[in-house]
Design a protein around this nucleic acid. Structure first.
Ligand SMILES: [Mn+2]
Ligand SMILES: [Mn+2]
Ligand SMILES: [Mn+2]
Ligand SMILES: [Mn+2]
Lengths: 217, 217
DNA sequence: ATATATTTTTAGACAAGACTAAAAATTATT
DNA sequence: AATAATTTTTAGTCTTGTCTAAAAATATAT
């Protein structure tokens, strides 16, 4: 069994490992968890004793199979709870993350199985992120940043890169939600801004926005 | 804001105060929380600093208004989660308590309001215990122990005194659930055992059982 | 290759929450 | 009222998880 703090470290290392296949540095973990490098070193030793990470001094950490499975299970819970909050309790997608950060630590295998069934075994959370299965496997769909689309290409909005409340509320305001089809009408080279067609409406999109929206072609 | 540990102390004192209107003793709290009296003294001082209890050395504690409200809110969350687990996730009434012990500490006013609405504003939990309202008030119905019923009296089963998993499973096995009508057919003086009529069936009930079932006449 | 900058680890401290053992206060008994 | 038993508090220790400051290792620049 893992403490709340251990679980948060595992989850952080898991996320960092997904897009960086070398060992995860002490500093990277510290930054994500908003803590100090020395605290990370301490915790890494504990996790290493519990055999969820492999740790070589000054060389960073990697998750063991047990570590990966444990972390994936926490992510699974986080994302299932997010779906529950949006689908059943009328939360909007910008309100769910902080509550899910708490709910992901509830320990009850039956609870999460029942929530999963109650929701009809969803595959993705409200932000388009995949929900790991019970064994910790997650199938990623291929998706591209909107900024990589060329003029006249179109696709469906399937995820966000930045899931801050501010960004999500901004998308709401513009009428951009997951599942919507869009087409690139115009692409400005000098600032990377786009003109897109969505719901039959023309919309101006800054480069910053285009770099944080995932599209499935 | 209160820590998990502080919340558990508050809840314990709240429950103890409900059936003992003197100051709650250090030992009583220690017993309920399965901890040591010295630990309780330490915590009581912290709670006193936070003005949720009034503490006089050697004289026990009482909750302040703020303390009562805070405690009632935790109990509210506990019981609403229990209803949710039974009504929506197919938990049986003997499986919900331990999970609710975790869920009651989730901090999100919106979450609990939405759960309340989602459940149709229930007034009682699966064990027949009343759910405090948002201001911390709880209306208690008058109920009597089955053991206090006289021969030929009848009533409706409305609650349990012992809510251990063992007792609840025992009741399930005997077909005794909340809402059922029953009548005392026979009452043995020497061992306090009863013969009751429930669902048209005659059933033998030991004194121990009769002392843990609440009936509304 | 040496010096400099950065990252990581160690050493030592602190707060929260628990424990044991001993002291002090209260309650019960003779 | 004095003594004994019980309850409560205090003093000191421990673990978890955090921090700062200093030392050690690694990476970068000259
Ligand atoms: Mn999230
Ligand atoms: Mn998400
Ligand atoms: Mn309960
Ligand atoms: Mn209950």
């Amino acid at each position: 069994m893992f403490t709340l703090s251990e679980e948060n470290y595992l989850k952080t290392i898991y996320h960092l490992e997904l897009d960086a296949d070398k060992g995860i540095s002490t500093n990277a973990i510290a930054k994500k968890l908003e803590t100090k490098a020395s605290s990370v070193t301490d915790m890494i030793k504990k996790l290493s004793d519990k055999e969820v990470v492999v740790y070589k001094k000054y060389k960073g950490v990697t998750l063991t199979e047990l570590g990966k499975k444990t972390a994936a299970n926490i992510v699974r819970k986080h994302r299932l709870w997010e779906v529950f909050l949006v689908e059943k309790l009328n939360f909007s997608w910008d309100e769910v993350h902080d509550v899910a950060e708490q709910l992901e630590h509830i320990k009850s295998p039956k609870l999460i199985d029942q929530i999963d069934a109650f929701l009809g075994f969803p595959t993705h959370d409200p932000h388009g992120d995949p929900i790991p299965d019970k064994d910790g496997n997650l199938k990623t769909i291929e998706k591209s940043l909107l900024s990589t689309l060329l003029k006249n290409e179109s696709g469906i909005c399937v995820g966000v890169n930045d899931s801050s409340s501010e960004f999500l509320k901004f998308l709401d305001k513009k009428g951009i939600t997951l599942g919507k089809q869009l087409t690139v009408l115009e692409k400005e080279d000098f600032d990377g801004s786009l003109s897109i067609l969505i719901d039959g409406e023309k919309l101006s999109i800054s480069n910053k926005i285009a770099n944080n929206l995932y599209i499935q072609k």
